[in-house]
């Protein structure tokens, strides 16, 4: 693969996706450069989550092109496992493995999938749990942790695979208000370290603070996009304005 960091790390061109007769994405194009943090916002059912789930091939697309580091995702011969080693994902419902401890959740994929040495993987996992401020919770099972703590374990679990891009699918939507902050802080730390992040979020203040670029989607298309300052202060499209007036 002849991808260079001068090209977009993730590049979507005219992506179409439908579930049966329901069209969810109607020609979406966007580019994400290495180190960029982009936020996708928009009303429910506008295709935001579907959009990022297509990037790591959890959903397939019917038409268009998705390149991740130059590799075409919309390809029947795609090696999905190779793609997913490069793309980490965090879900709204955390989806931790309930029969494994926090530490096991984090170190299992590196050991089983990347065939890392167990001792090394454990050391990395402990460091990651410390990084998401969960030192001392290594032996806890997901059921014993709060939503915010579980979500931070989920972030550590994704980071343990050393991905190049991280996808965040409304990761604070299921959380109690008092634990939202700790998760957002963790993501902010990541963004400041230069991790390429694609976020679907309803946290406008957060998006404004961390995003390099904001995309507003409605009914399967990108209605408007721009850097946070212009986007929030000077939205052009009436749909964007209406959405922002409801939220802010």
């Amino acid at each position: 693969m002849s991808w260079t960091p001068a090209e977009p790390m993730v590049s979507l061109k005219d992506v179409h996706k439908s579930f049966g007769t329901l069209k969810v994405l109607n020609g979406v194009s966007l580019d994400v450069m290495k180190g960029d943090v982009i936020c996708i916002i928009g009303p429910s059912g506008s295709g935001k989550s579907t959009l990022i789930r297509c990037v790591n091939a959890l959903n397939d697309i019917q038409q268009g092109s998705i390149l991740v580091e130059g590799q075409e995702v919309n390809d029947p011969n795609l090696d999905k496992l190779e793609l997913r080693k490069k793309v980490g994902m965090v879900f709204q419902q955390y989806n931790l493995f309930p029969h494994k401890t926090a530490l096991q959740n984090v170190m299992m994929a590196p050991v089983r999938v990347l065939k890392q040495d167990k001792a090394k993987a454990e050391a990395t996992a402990r460091a990651l749990l410390k990084k998401v401020r969960l030192e001392g919770k290594e032996g806890a099972y997901p059921g014993e942790l709060s939503g915010g703590q579980q979500q931070r374990v989920a972030i550590a679990r994704s980071l343990a695979m050393q991905p190049d891009v991280m996808l965040f699918d409304e990761v604070t939507a299921a959380l109690d208000p008092e634990t939202v902050g700790e998760v957002l802080q963790t993501i902010k730390d990541l963004a400041e370290e230069g991790m390429t992040c694609i976020l679907v979020t309803h946290e406008m203040a957060f998006a404004r603070e961390v995003a390099d670029h904001i995309y507003f989607t409605d009914r399967g298309i990108i209605v408007e996009h721009g850097p946070p300052e212009t986007f929030f202060k000077n939205a052009q499209d009436p749909r964007t304005r209406e959405f922002l007036s409801q939220i802010l």
Partner: peptide, 27 residues
């Protein structure tokens, strides 16, 4: 089992067989 378990495992690049034997069946 919630489908999120499958999705989480897939997104971590587990093969289908690994997902089944390491994550789904133990639960």
């Amino acid at each position: 089992l919630p489908s999120g378990q499958w999705e989480a495992a897939e997104s971590l690049a587990y093969s289908r067989r690994q997902t089944l034997w390491l994550i789904i069946l133990p639960q």
